[in-house]
Amino acid sequence: MSIQHFRVALIPFFAAFCLPVFAHPETLVKVKDAEDQLGARVGYIELDLNSGKILESFRPEERFPMMSTFKVLLCGAVLSRVDAGQEQLGRRIHYSQNDLVEYSPVTEKHLTDGMTVRELCSAAITMSDNTAANLLLTTIGGPKELTAFLHNMGDHVTRLDRWEPELNEAIPNDERDTTMPAAMATTLRKLLTGELLTLASRQQLIDWMEADKVAGPLLRSALPAGWFIADKSGAGERGSRGIIAALGPDGKPSRIVVIYTTGSQATMDERNRQIAEIGASLIKHW
């Protein structure tokens, strides 16, 4: 067993022997301040990774656009098919120029040779490549099948209805392509620590998230040296922004954090800054 596999296998073990965790309302004060600064709703939840206990939450059962955070769930569904012998990570998928959609920095470079399922998941999570996500959605049967996968996990809230990039439209009061912070946090925890996926697939999923290259201005910008984070960000229309993450000190994750916002007129930089400040408060009061 590799060191990384050992780390993920012992996530519940280490967490069980940690000192009790206590909620700190100071972080919620910052979440509410972010709402004021952005002029928009902000949803927040913080779960203990081992027990699933909610440590703090704000608007945990209000719907927010998922945006690209759905790509972690998508690759979880792909990995479940791999575990069941219905898919192979090494299978190569070929596609054409007509398949390319807006923001496809990886797939646009491989029109000639195609990409493997493993490479597509890596591109979808680490670079948020939209064509990679659409190609992977095709392998599982489309958005409705991802929703069905989530329902089978016990998540009857999260739903995907459309493809990239239309799913980022974020129309107010439109339930399409949305989740709730509580539902997303619980589902992410199941994917990373539950028995739904094999140990190898859980490790692969967290490795992809740990290698995320496009979430630097968010929670990662607030992390002290030595902290662990595996995350996936999302951005959408109407001032929408979000991030889902597993993080913790001492090089291992111990909490799940989900943050979503929508309806702001603020710039992307300002949305990023507010999420980073929430992260800084979380870490300060850990």
Rank of each mutant, 00 (worst) to 15 (best):
R63G: 12
W227C: 03
D33H: 02
L223F: 13
Q204A: 03
A123K: 06
L218S: 03
V257A: 14
H94V: 03
T138C: 12
I93A: 15
S254C: 10
I54M: 09
E61C: 14
G239W: 02
W208G: 04
S51C: 15
V101G: 02
T187G: 14
M209Y: 01
V117Q: 03
L196C: 14
L218F: 04
D36V: 07
N130P: 01
M180E: 03
I206W: 07
E210P: 01
H94Y: 04
L191I: 02
D177Y: 00
S80T: 08
D33M: 02
S51K: 07
L199V: 12
K190N: 11
L120E: 01
R176I: 02
D161S: 03
N130E: 01
Q88H: 08
L120V: 05
L89K: 05
I93K: 15
L47M: 04
L191P: 01
D250G: 03
D231N: 03
C75G: 08
T112R: 10
L120K: 01
V42S: 03
G251R: 11
N173L: 11
V101A: 04
G242D: 01
Q37I: 12
L167S: 08
A185I: 11
R63Y: 14
I278G: 00
H156F: 13
Q274M: 11
L191R: 01
L74C: 10
G52C: 14
A77P: 02
L196V: 10
S57P: 08
D231M: 08
T107G: 10
G248P: 00
A133K: 01
I206H: 08
P143W: 05
Q88G: 10
Q274C: 07
T198Y: 12
V117K: 03
L28D: 08
S128Q: 00
A245V: 12
H285W: 10
P105W: 06
S281R: 07
K284D: 09
L167N: 07
H110I: 04
A77D: 08
E166Y: 14
V214Y: 06
R176V: 14
P249E: 06
D83P: 05
L167A: 09
T107I: 09
L191G: 06
V117C: 09
G242N: 14
M184H: 04
S57N: 07
L28K: 05
E87V: 07
Q274L: 11
P249L: 07
M115C: 02
D155F: 01
D161C: 10
T131P: 06
I171C: 15
T261G: 07
S240P: 10
H110T: 14
C121A: 06
W286H: 08
A133D: 01
R241K: 15
E87F: 11
K252W: 08
L192A: 04
P181H: 01
G242R: 00
L219A: 10
M268R: 10
T138A: 08
T147G: 07
L100Y: 05
K213C: 02
A183T: 06
T179Q: 00
L55M: 03
A235N: 14
G43H: 01
E46H: 14
Q274A: 13
S201V: 13
A222N: 03
G52P: 09
P143Q: 14
T126P: 07
T178K: 04
G85P: 07
N50R: 06
T27C: 12
K144R: 02
Q86D: 14
M209G: 11
I140G: 07
R59N: 12
M268L: 13
G142V: 06
S96K: 07
S80Q: 15
A133N: 02
V106A: 15
Y95M: 11
E237N: 13
I171R: 15
Y103R: 05
G43Q: 01
M67V: 12
I244C: 13
A276Y: 09
I229W: 04
A84P: 07
R159Q: 14
P181I: 03
A266T: 03
K53Y: 12
S122F: 13
V31C: 03
G279Q: 04
V42H: 02
G216S: 10
I278N: 00
R159M: 12
E119I: 01
A123N: 02
P181E: 00
M67K: 03
E62H: 02
D212Y: 02
P217H: 11
L247H: 02
R271G: 11
A123Q: 02
T198I: 08
T158G: 06
G263E: 09
G142T: 05
G52I: 04
R238S: 08
D33R: 02
R162I: 01
E277T: 05
A183D: 02
A215K: 11
R91W: 15
A148G: 07
G43T: 02
A266C: 07
G141I: 12
P249F: 07
L219H: 06
V258G: 03
T261C: 04
S201H: 15
A34F: 10
P25Q: 11
D99L: 05
G114C: 03
T116N: 15
M115R: 04
M153T: 03
S281F: 03
H156G: 11
A225Y: 12
D48P: 04
G85M: 07
L89Q: 10
D212F: 04
S233L: 10
V101S: 04
L111I: 04
P25A: 12
A124M: 14
L196N: 08
E164L: 00
A280W: 15
N50M: 15
K252L: 14
G236R: 01
S104L: 01
L150H: 08
L196E: 05
A280T: 15
L282W: 05
L136R: 00
V257C: 08
P224Y: 04
T158H: 02
L136G: 08
E61T: 04
D155Q: 04
A34C: 14
R59G: 14
A148Y: 06
D269R: 05
L218Q: 03
S264K: 09
M67Y: 08
R41Q: 02
L55E: 04
R162L: 09
N272D: 12
N134D: 08
P224G: 10
S80N: 15
T112F: 13
L47I: 07
M180W: 03
H94F: 03
I275D: 00
T187S: 15
E108F: 15
I275K: 00
A276E: 09
A183S: 08
S240I: 02
A132L: 00
L55C: 04
R273F: 11
P65I: 13
E210G: 14
I206A: 11
L135E: 12
G251N: 07
S68G: 00
R273S: 13
L100R: 13
Q265S: 06
S104I: 14
K53S: 11
A133I: 01
A124V: 15
V106P: 03
W163Y: 10
I206M: 15
L136Y: 00
L197D: 15
R81A: 09
P165T: 05
G239D: 12
S128I: 00
K32G: 15
M180D: 10
G263V: 12
T138N: 14
V117L: 13
T27L: 11
I54W: 07
E26N: 09
S233I: 01
V31L: 06
L74Y: 00
A123R: 02
L191N: 04
R162H: 12
C75R: 00
G251L: 12
T179K: 00
I206Q: 10
P253N: 07
N152R: 07
M209Q: 10
N130H: 01
M67Q: 11
V78T: 14
L199N: 02
K252A: 08
P25R: 06
I125P: 00
V101P: 04
F149A: 07
Q88M: 09
L160Y: 13
V257H: 02
A211W: 14
K71W: 00
T178C: 07
L218G: 04
T198L: 12
I275N: 01
